[in-house]
């Protein structure tokens, strides 16, 4: 398909432009992440050992929730103003459009969250060895969160109480990412091999890519029919 790269890039660019116009949205998500992660020391008590133990899990869960909050608007604006129907009619395959929008979504959620993680890790006094693996795991894991999330966001278009429905659909599928993301960091902090867990995260990403493309496209077609 000649010139196939340019239309996809334009979809990504358009979504990025729209997202950056509301820079506050990105900031809100990162702030939510930072504030929620900061709640736990108040709740659990300022015990360094305890905080170090829970840090990987807390950071992953709050990042996951931050991504979850941002999913509803992945397709909603385009759905409501009719651009989604136009995109569906364009010669560009809907699968590619899903991947493009999900990539833009990750650039405005998973990536900023990963960038903010070192600061949060500081709050929990995470050693450098753990932090390095945590960042690697988040780079591998957060795209999967956007991909799987896009399936839920597409399915819930036009549904009653879509905002509440999306977490219900998406959270069970998030669990493996969470498990391996935390296990990788725990392994690194215990001087065990983190590589198997990181490889599993990579495998999950490899599975999430075609799944999100096909399932997301199917769901979008149902929404605009």
């Amino acid at each position: 398909m000649s010139g196939g790269g340019a239309p996809i890039r334009s979809v990504v660019a358009r979504d990025l432009r729209l997202a950056l116009r509301q820079r506050s949205d990105i900031l809100t998500i990162v702030l939510f992440f930072a504030l929620t992660a900061s709640l736990f020391p108040f709740a659990l008590g300022p015990y360094p050992d305890l905080l170090q133990r829970v840090a990987p899990g807390v950071i992953w869960v709050t990042a996951l929730l931050a991504v979850l909050l941002s999913l509803e608007r992945l397709f909603l604006a385009d759905y409501e103003d009719g651009s989604l129907e136009l995109l569906a009619l364009s010669p560009l395959p809907l699968e590619a459009i899903v991947l493009a929008k999900t990539f833009a979504h990750w650039l405005t959620t998973g990536l900023p969250l990963t960038a903010a993680t070192p600061l949060i890790a500081l709050l929990y006094d995470m050693p450098a060895s753990g932090l390095a693996v945590l960042l690697a795991a988040m780079i591998l894991g957060t795209p999967s969160l956007s991909l799987i999330g896009s399936i839920g966001a597409a399915l819930a278009l036009g549904a009653r109480r879509g905002g509440v429905l999306i977490p219900l659909l998406v959270l069970p599928l998030y669990v493996p990412i969470l498990i391996f993301g935390v296990a990788a960091v725990d392994a690194a902090l215990s001087d065990l091999a983190a590589r198997p867990h990181l490889l599993l995260l990579a495998a999950l990403l490899a599975v999430a890519l075609p799944t999100a493309a096909f399932a997301g496209a199917a769901a979008l077609r149902q929404a605009v029919e």
Binding site: I151, G158, A159, L169
Partner: peptide, 23 residues
């Protein structure tokens, strides 16, 4: 939840079908 979340029952069935296959 998904199958009952739409006014149009067929839309609900098709959406739930996608979810079932993903899972």
């Amino acid at each position: 939840a998904l199958i009952n979340a739409f006014e149009n029952p067929e839309r609900g069935q098709k959406a739930a079908a996608v979810l079932t296959l993903v899972g």
